[in-house]
Write a protein that binds this DNA or RNA. Structure first.
Lengths: 117, 117
DNA sequence: GTAAGAGCTGACATACATGTCAGGTTCAAG
DNA sequence: CTTGAACCTGACATGTATGTCAGCTCTTAC
């Protein structure tokens, strides 16, 4: 499929898809005229990339996490890295919860200050 | 107190404290020689600013959320904005939880692919 | 073969708090 | 009055995926 269709199917802009290609996150072939062509698998791949981005994994690490993009190979190291990221994300979630609690306290305090005035 | 001490007490770099001043988040007076001087309250204020930053509130909104930095005034609008931010942060926490779950699924899938190989 | 839509490249912009550096000034203790 | 630590300003850099624009080319249906 071409880039417009992949963009439509994934909700990711053509601009971003081209960039994924540049970063070697996504395999692309070219037509004789130079237009990008993608396999059907690309849809899943793009979605996986988006999950990792949402998890705060920088693009330069994604290639080492996702199964090798031309051979489909999966290695134990990938599982390990993925688990590291999960650990990191859990920690981040915990921090966010702590921040939320501090924010709750700020709301309460600010309300009190308002009443006192 | 001067900037070095405030930095030490809050764990925020002098560079950042100067920037808070520029952004009118923090009140600073000057010695005759031009060195910044801070009230003791500044410690609390800086910590509040950090909580808001951690919650993803951009600096340009902080001034409208924290009690007015020279009069100490607290308005109902501040409480409202603070509650908006709390709502936003809760949504963000929920998204993070969803992402974490998708990451869990990815870990499981990747493990399976590894076993299958 | 042509018109319109889709795609191409390359470049510049963004948000934002912080790091860091250079070159100069002030402060405070001796 | 000197010295060393602390501070000043101003500037440039950072990371990062995405938006957007300009100018040009390819594709495809007619």
């Amino acid at each position: 499929m071409r880039i417009g269709e992949l963009a439509r199917l994934t909700g990711v802009s053509p601009r971003s898809l081209r960039w994924y290609g540049e970063q070697s996150l996504l395999r692309e072939t070219r037509t004789s005229g130079g237009h990008r062509e993608y396999d059907d698998d690309a849809v899943d791949r793009v979605q996986a990339i988006q999950v990792l981005f949402a998890a705060g994994v920088p693009a330069r690490h994604v290639a080492g996490i996702l199964p090798c993009y031309d051979t489909g190979t999966t290695t134990p190291a990938m599982v390990a890295r993925l688990e590291e990221e999960r650990t990191r994300l859990r920690a981040q979630a915990a921090e966010l919860a702590a921040t939320l609690q501090r924010l709750d306290e700020m709301v309460a305090e600010t309300r009190l200050r308002l009443l006192a005035a």
